[in-house]
Simulated assay, not measured.
Amino acid sequence: MIDLNAIVLKYYSKLNETDLLIWEYIARHKKEVSSLTITELAEATNVSRTTISRFVRKLGLTGYSEFKVLLNMSNETLPQSREAFHEACDCLSNYINKQRDKDFGKVCQLIFDAKRVFVYGTGDVQQSVAKQFKRLFLSVEEVVYDFAGTTFDPAMYNILDSNDLIFIISLSGNTDKVLSIARQLKMTGTKIISLTEFKNNPLAELSDENLYIDTTKLSFLATHPNYKMTMPYYLLVELLFIQYAMYKNNRLVLSESK
């Protein structure tokens, strides 16, 4: 579907100050403008009919009629956008409710017993989540080492051992690269906890424990028709942090009482 906003951005350099004022008015009153004649729009924006016609042609359109068609199409997508927003909220709400009953005990125990904890993100978003993971766990005096690059230095296989724990954050858990890393880590005895989107994946099978995110494809952007939210990653890491903070406190209290 042709997006009117995208057209304006495409021809933005051709628009003068008056054109931009016209577009600003249209953008703020799309529904009302869709029913206006060219004369009525000219009066509403305090310009002439000729100026409106010139503005429309600068957008590569044949005339005001074509502009009105695209504007109406844009308005028709608004309910879909609202629906996508509600779907996004439902997705996050449902995911949080699922985590309410999840037992994080084994994951927390692996973190607590590990000599060192590492986290590795396989992509841009995953690396950002890894850094958030590192920041959060510092609050409970747990130093987490993260890999800042997209590559996994082979020298790490000589450093890691059975006393270490690594979180691998991957979208599918099914790429050759991440599976090769996981297999070599298993040979060193390193404990692995996977964070993936899909429950049935090879990385999860190679891991000691698995954590999953739920997400859904949303269609509200012409440039990203299958947009996926990244928030579940951050929600999962924060919920795990809260669970671990309580777990560690309980372990320390029990230790002091002996």
Rank of each mutant, 00 (worst) to 15 (best):
I166N: 06
E256D: 11
T223D: 03
H224L: 09
N46G: 04
D101P: 01
D103L: 03
A222Y: 07
S81F: 02
P79V: 09
L4H: 00
T150M: 09
N163Q: 11
N158Y: 15
A222P: 01
E256H: 12
N5V: 15
M156D: 13
Q99I: 14
N210Q: 12
V253E: 09
A245N: 05
L179I: 14
Y64E: 10
T223C: 02
Q127N: 07
N5M: 08
I193N: 14
E43I: 14
N94S: 12
L92C: 03
E83R: 02
Y25C: 02
C91T: 12
I7N: 00
Y244T: 07
L15W: 07
L165C: 06
E40I: 09
V47K: 09
K58P: 09
S48T: 14
S65K: 13
I168F: 03
V56K: 05
Y244S: 01
F133D: 07
N72A: 03
L203P: 03
S172G: 15
I166G: 02
Q126P: 02
D208V: 05
I192C: 02
Q243G: 01
D19G: 02
A6T: 14
F220I: 11
V237A: 05
M231N: 04
Y11H: 15
M246C: 01
I52G: 00
T196N: 08
F85H: 08
N226E: 13
I193W: 06
V140G: 10
T175M: 11
L160H: 03
E32T: 14
V33R: 04
L4N: 03
N250Q: 10
F112Q: 11
L160Q: 08
K258T: 14
R116Q: 15
N210R: 13
L41F: 13
L138M: 06
V129E: 03
L171R: 09
F85C: 04
M187H: 06
G123S: 15
A148K: 04
K248F: 11
N249W: 07
V144N: 08
L236D: 00
L138C: 01
S207M: 06
L71W: 11
A44I: 03
T215H: 04
T188Q: 09
T39G: 08
L206S: 04
K10Q: 11
T50I: 13
E87H: 04
D214M: 07
T150E: 14
D101N: 10
G173W: 04
E24C: 01
S207D: 04
D146P: 03
T196P: 07
K102M: 12
T122V: 15
V117A: 05
E87P: 00
T196I: 11
F112V: 10
T196C: 10
Q80K: 15
F241D: 05
S53H: 10
I7C: 05
A114D: 01
I166R: 06
I181G: 04
F147S: 07
Q243P: 02
S255W: 12
C89I: 15
